[in-house]
Design a protein around this nucleic acid. Structure first.
Lengths: 137, 137
DNA sequence: GATAATTTATTAGCTGGCTAATTTTAGTAT
DNA sequence: ATACTAAAATTAGCCAGCTAATAAATTATC
């Protein structure tokens, strides 16, 4: 049996390389790799609870909590009480958090180009569809 | 622009989910997710230096160093001096390290099945080729 | 209404990835 | 031989993921 040829092996290797690219891409905007995905969700819908973010991002609640700590520190988001449930807080984008979106979109486009460098358009499309299918979409 | 449809976004999401699967798959063998890849390399060639492992696995030297700490702790590998260069050490598999291979191969097959669940054989083959291409192979 | 079970956020602590800086050794140039 | 440079391992410290355990609030049950 050959580990090297398995999808699992290749996926693990690719994902490490890609995370390094991602980190480089977003650092200019003052963000870290994990924070980006939380920002994506907040740009879609501001004021969500932590549990909502965790559910949508498929991350464990403590992971989201830790990431939010960094985003609060960096003044990208703020916390507010959730009016219907004292257990929860709502997370809102700051002005800075809204403004960084433009820059991140540019960087994201560059990242995407680097990621699929060497693939044809057809291959890129195919890869996207296969990954989406793996996610159960 | 839609982040959710990018290969970068999908790849990041898939890789997190896959790492959770991987962790579950190898924990029964007493290993952690990152340690597995070092073991792969040692099964291919025993007695390598840390820098060799880092190069082949595309990992930073401190990462390999940390992972080896766990493998030494778990008695999967041992260290020996490198006879030609006092800066280096050679990493050797213990008996336990050699024996765990059988079990890991079984678990790996299961992991692989879970990973590509929902894909046809053709799609799996396609995915494997695309990932290999992303790795520059 | 009292009690039990669930949910949300959080804390603590682990592995795994990284960069930067340090130490030791080897190699190279003068 | 000396001095400089490069390479290997390590340490420290960061972020990102996880599980387990805890506290507070809500909900369900009786």
């Amino acid at each position: 049996m050959n580990f090297d040829d398995s999808v699992s092996f290749l996926l693990a290797k690719v994902s490490i390389a890609h995370r390094n690219l991602l980190q480089k891409a977003v650092s200019g905007a003052g963000l870290h790799s994990g924070q980006v995905f939380v920002m994506f969700e907040l740009w879609k819908a501001d004021g969500q609870r932590q549990i909502d973010l965790a559910d949508k991002l498929n991350l464990a609640p403590p992971t989201v909590n830790k990431i939010l700590g960094g985003l609060l520190e960096g003044d990208f988001v703020t916390r507010a009480k959730y009016e219907d449930d004292a257990r929860s807080t709502r997370i809102f984008l700051t002005e800075k958090g809204k403004e960084v979106r433009v820059r991140l979109e540019e960087q994201w486009a560059e990242l995407e180009a680097e990621t699929v460098e060497g693939l044809t358009d057809t291959e890129t499309l195919m890869l996207r569809q296969l990954l989406a299918k793996l996610l159960g979409q």
